[in-house]
Design a protein around this nucleic acid. Structure first.
Lengths: 134, 134
DNA sequence: GTAGTGTATTATATCACTTAATACACCTAA
DNA sequence: TTAGGTGTATTAAGTGATATAATACACTAC
């Protein structure tokens, strides 16, 4: 429940999922949504671990995955920085969105739910929006 | 990779996810899609465990969840049967679809992706379909 | 040199998942 | 009644992912 602010980052950590995964997801989201600026300095591994009351190894695991995503760059002895490339962020967004989309469609298919039914659900969830394909 | 048939049920089991979860998902899907008939007798816990080369406790865990879903009924001493109520199956379908939908929309929101962008992705994935809301 | 970075290693603990062995309660059919 | 098939419960054990803790090393800026 308790939301923490560390620099321009906000964190909500609980025990429903692995800690490193929550840190990873929330930083990913902040970068994807532009809540933290391109090229900005990330909190250091030790600092973030201290603030979140979590082991440094746990933070490092999240940071390593962020670099694999191409969302951050590490400079030994200096720190971790958000990538300066808007293209990389955009590429990450589309790739992850595509994965989310595929697994969602697979779930719906396993229930025998067609595309038109999905569209129907979408309309119900957003009754006020006209929808992009209408 | 190896797909197994047990009665009218088909199973593909690997080690990417918990075994009980895979069994659960695949039986759910079979019932939701009508691949196994309403009121049909399910394989017994011991039989399915033997066929899938899995511990009976693991199968039982999946079966217990199926009953919680309202998709099966157990008759002590007789066996496990698929529910005879088409309404229950339909209810389950809509409830689970709604959950899938919500968590999907949450994922997309975490990437800062709007509804109209989602509609765009849908059109790309299904270029030949007209779509139910058009 | 000092302090702050990321990184690596080793040990330990906990929990979810799975298997295994066994026993019990219930129902059906011979 | 007996035998065999149901679901259920319990106890024990092993494995792997997750997390913590303590420590050390390499690099960089000041």
């Amino acid at each position: 429940m308790e939301e923490q602010k560390i620099g321009s980052l906000r964190f909500k950590i609980d025990f429903s999922q692995p800690l490193y995964e929550q840190i990873l997801d929330q930083v990913r989201s902040a970068i994807a949504k532009g809540e933290i600026e391109l090229g900005a300095k990330m909190p250091s591994v030790r600092e973030l671990a201290l603030e979140l009351r979590v082991n440094p190894n746990t933070v490092m695991r999240a940071y390593q995955e962020l670099e694999r995503d191409g969302l951050t760059e590490k400079r030994r002895g200096q720190g971790t920085y958000v990538t300066s490339s808007a293209e990389r962020v955009q590429l990450f967004r589309t790739e992850l969105a595509s994965k989310y989309m595929d697994s969602f469609l697979e779930q719906m298919a396993s229930l025998g739910i067609s595309l038109s039914e999905i569209q129907g659900y979408l309309s119900k969830k957003y009754p006020n929006e006209t929808g992009g394909t209408r």
